[in-house]
Design a protein around this nucleic acid. Structure first.
Length: 822
RNA sequence: GCGGGCGUGGCGGAAUUGGCAGACGCGCUGGUUUUAGGUACCAGUUCUUCGGAGUGUGGGUUCGAGUCCCUCCGCCCGCACCA
């Protein structure tokens, strides 16, 4: 493709200029209004792929646009540089993860610099920077001190492939590891946890005031999983001093309880199991405990699977509603980690209980009257209560209230809110992460490393293998230390922190990366927070975005972030994915499309424009055979802009004719359109509007009538300014040619439309007969309803069709439309 | 199974408030310039029996529906024993 200018040299020239001039460096004492634009900091996986390009194109458009709108825009960059892939790659290559990671960082940096995305590089943050680690560890210790970090033995998700523990969030629905795809096992280990559950309610309710995609908010709400119910006792039949505590959200169905179930891990299971049933129960428990989450949670739809997965304990408990004894089962469909680990079972109103009851021959007693046409088994909807003693005739809401009162008096009942959300397991048995700053002393127990000894850094001479222990555990010099308390022999914690801890506060350090003696100075950061526009992938809808929200709330509460808002990201935009012929792209599939070849042909500007133009930013992009042609088309548009700016043979005249005025109006309408489109993230239509404007200007300027010089100059200037955030290099280049020695177009003010130019004297009015278009006529924009009707009826084509018939009705919507009904 | 989203030309998509469906681009067709190819430029491009018909299907509300309501079909995403 022959281009009218040298893309490579122009782009290189401006990239160097922006860096040297520090155009997009911004200081914390900047007097302008603040705007914080943030793209999720990337894991350094090597050169950029189209997903990165799309992300940074959107971010850079925002940065440059808001700068032209007169704001001080914070645009930082950094790297989520700890993580498993680097460690695995280093093991494979026999190198060190740091060397591997830093090489990848360099590649990604150069790749995005060539995109022309601009950042305040002075603020760069990366997770494995010892300074950053120091503050990450300080925060861990502050959490520990305030009770937000604790150590506990817990059944954990163990990935044999990654040889580490995973957070619940990292285990996929099918029970496999989101990273390696291995089947996740259950193990009991001593681990560090963060008490994110303390914030469950706030994390849920604050979602309402965030400008986030509804989809992401829904996913977080489901993940947190709040449910209101009652906890109460079911007394043992054979020993009234003991009771089984259960949780239910449907206390109103209490008269329908026909059995109870305990989880295989339940502490009272032994006491409930009779001698005759012991063998069966033990078999079930052994199976359940060793079974992976996968086996335990699949075949939920198959009644056949349920038979094997439950066993009668031999004991009975008393239903407090009707004093009847009901059998107690052990079954793995009840989870030991939720609620009380035991339930009352109501087959008539709960599908799972119904399926289990069918298989085990348990009875079903309806307590809610289903609608007449109800055909299924369990009915969990609204309805009048039946078979329910004092609740008969009540609706679900009032019956719940009555049942709760009843249980409070009769069965130690207490209203209770439970969450699906569990505490955040942060220990990782890996090397390439931030060490947990703890030592274990035989005499003093768990001892935090004193702040003046931070950061705890991992030694470099470590042999990395996959034994299931942190590689640090085999390094004697690191492992053996002295207790900071008593000076006696002690052992270091060898686990590292989940890398999601790093990404939970990096945006705070960006806002104040210079403070030497703390993680950040709250008063400095408060000037920028919350992030005005956060941009990233939908894959972080739960994990990162929930953890970061928790971190900020916790940091504020423990006094490390005084004066900061409790929510980090005010507005969130999640971009669509890039697919290749419909399938997901990934490094492992090797089907990533590198941007470099496009830098050579259409340039960074052409590629950026493509990503903006190809479709709505939130939609997925399917990279097909046609894509190359669309990218060429974007390059062609830029060529035409360049040529338009070069033209000096424009046929100019002094007076202002109707054509000139029409073009001016088009220019000002485009200002409104593009501004509005950018504000509502409709970049594809903004680009289309610029293409339209270019077509208008070039057609007009080469027409026989010619163009008024001033109008031509104004038109081209506006076009270049509106294009500047999208295609920054070419905009800067042509601006410099038009105004040598003047400040860059990127420092210009964003154009503002002249209201006078937006006013339209005449508009096209449509005349319909019975809803079908019959005529178009030019009318004054301020035509009255009466005049519009009159003009329509008098129109030749209309009166001809009406043939003197009096219309039954005339709908007049001046100045756009008149509809005549006959 | 539950929750959410989406179905518009050959293709990506536009139509922000119920009021000219198909902006803009790709592709395609024809033309001009050029020694030729390419480039650039110009014109055309939903279908049509030229009456009209037309936004996945069938219905409804309305003077008027791509847009609002209901039914069905198809696709995509999330959750999936959380009591």
């Amino acid at each position: 493709m022959a281009r009218p200018f040298d893309v490579k040299s122009i782009e290189a020239k401006w990239q160097a200029r922006w860096l040297e001039d520090g155009t997009y460096e911004v200081d914390n004492d900047d007097p302008r209004e603040r705007f914080y634009v943030l793209c999720m900091y990337p894991y350094p996986s090597g050169t950029a792929h189209q997903g990165h390009i799309r992300n940074y194109t959107f971010g850079d458009l925002m940065v440059r646009y808001q700068t032209m709108r007169g704001k001080a825009v914070l645009s930082p960059f950094g790297f989520d540089s700890f993580g498993l892939p680097a460690e695995n790659a280093a093991i494979k290559a026999g190198s060190h993860p740091r060397l591997f990671t830093e090489a990848r960082m360099k590649e990604l940096k150069s790749s995005i610099r060539r995109l022309g995305a601009v950042y305040d590089w002075r603020r760069e943050v990366y997770s494995h920077d010892p300074q950053y680690m120091r503050w990450a560890q300080t925060i861990f210790l502050a959490f520990l001190k305030s009770g937000l970090a604790y150590r506990a033995e817990a059944p954990v998700n163990w990935c044999p492939g990654c040889a580490t523990v995973l957070a619940n969030e990292q285990v996929l629905a099918d029970g496999t590891c989101e990273r390696s795809g291995d089947l996740v096992e259950r193990k009991n280990l001593e681990q560090w946890f963060f008490k994110i559950t303390d914030y469950a309610d706030e994390l849920l309710s604050d979602l309402d005031r965030l400008e986030w995609p509804e989809r992401v908010k829904t996913m977080q709400r489901n993940w947190i999983g709040r449910s209101e119910g009652v906890e109460f006792d079911l007394r043992f039949e054979h020993d009234s001093t003991q009771a089984l505590r259960v949780f239910t959200t449907r206390p109103d169905t209490g008269f329908g309880v026909t059995y109870a179930v305990v989880a295989p891990e339940h502490p009272l299971l032994g006491a409930l199991t009779t001698e005759e049933q012991r063998e069966q129960v033990t078999a079930l428990v052994e199976r359940a405990v060793s079974a992976s989450e996968l086996e335990r949670t699949t075949s939920s739809d198959a009644g056949a699977g349920l038979e094997k997965r439950g066993a009668f304990t031999g004991s009975y408990v008393i239903n407090p509603f009707n004093d009847q004894a009901v059998p107690v089962y052990v079954a793995d469909y009840v989870l030991g980690t939720y609620g009380t680990g035991a339930i009352m079972a109501v087959p008539a109103e709960d599908e799972r209980d119904y399926a289990f009851a069918m298989v085990h021959g348990l009875s079903v007693v309806r307590t809610t009257q289903p609608p007449a046409d109800f055909a299924g088994g369990a009915y969990s909807g609204e309805g009048e209560h039946i078979n329910s003693g004092f609740m008969d005739g009540m609706d679900v809401v009032s019956a719940k209230r009555a049942a709760t009162d009843f249980l409070a008096h009769q069965a130690n009942g207490v209203a209770k809110v439970n969450f699906r959300l569990r505490d955040w397991l942060v220990s990782r048995q890996r090397f390439w992460g931030c060490p947990i700053p703890i030592v274990y002393c035989e005499r003093c127990g768990i001892v935090p490393v004193p702040e003046d000894q931070l950061p705890v850094l991992a030694p470099d001479d470590v042999t990395m293998d996959q034994t299931g222990q942190s590689p640090l555990a085999t390094h004697q010099e690191f492992l053996n230390t002295t207790c900071p308390n008593c000076g006696g022999p002690a052992r270091r914690e060898t686990d590292t922190m989940d890398t999601f801890t790093d990404s939970s506060w990096y945006f705070l350090r960006y806002a104040d990366p210079f403070t030497p003696d703390k993680a950040f100075e709250p008063s400095e950061v408060a000037q920028w927070m919350p992030v005005d526009q956060y941009i990233g992938g939908i894959e972080h809808a739960i994990l990162h975005l929930l953890y970061a929200r928790f971190y900020l709330k916790a940091l504020v509460d423990i006094g490390l972030a005084d004066g900061l808002p409790r929510e980090p990201f005010h507005r969130l935009f999640t971009q669509g994915m890039i697919r290749l012929e419909g399938s997901k792209m990934s490094k492992s599939k090797g089907n990533l499309i590198a941007p470099e070849k496009y830098y050579e042909t259409v340039g960074a500007d052409g590629l950026r424009l493509f990503h903006l133009f190809v479709g709505p930013p939130a939609d997925d992009v399917d990279w097909t055979a046609q894509t190359e042609e669309v990218i060429e088309g974007c390059g062609r548009f830029l060529d035409r802009v360049f040529r338009l700016c070069q033209r000096d043979e424009v046929n100019v005249h002094d007076g202002l004719d109707a054509g000139d005025i029409a073009v001016r109006q088009a220019v000002h309408r485009t200002i409104v359109k593009v501004t509005d489109d950018i504000d509502r993230w409709s970049f594809n239509t903004a680009v289309a509007a610029l293409m339209e404007l270019l077509n208008t200007i070039s057609k007009w300027s080469r027409s026989g009538h010619g163009a008024n010089r001033a109008v031509f100059d104004e038109s081209v200037d506006v076009l270049v300014k509106l294009l500047a955030p999208m295609a920054p290099h070419i905009a800067a280049e042509v601006w410099e040619e038009r105004y040598p020695g003047q400040p860059s177009v990127h420092l210009e003010d964003w154009p503002v439309a002249d209201p006078e130019m937006l006013r339209q004297e005449h508009v096209t009015m449509i005349v319909q007969i019975n809803g079908k278009i019959r005529a178009r006529l030019e009318v004054p924009a301020d035509i009255t309803m009466k005049d519009a009707t009159l003009e329509a009826l008098e129109h030749a084509a209309i009166s001809a069709e009406l043939k003197g018939v009096t219309p039954a009705r005339v709908i007049s919507r001046p100045p756009r439309l008149v509809n005549i009904i006959i």
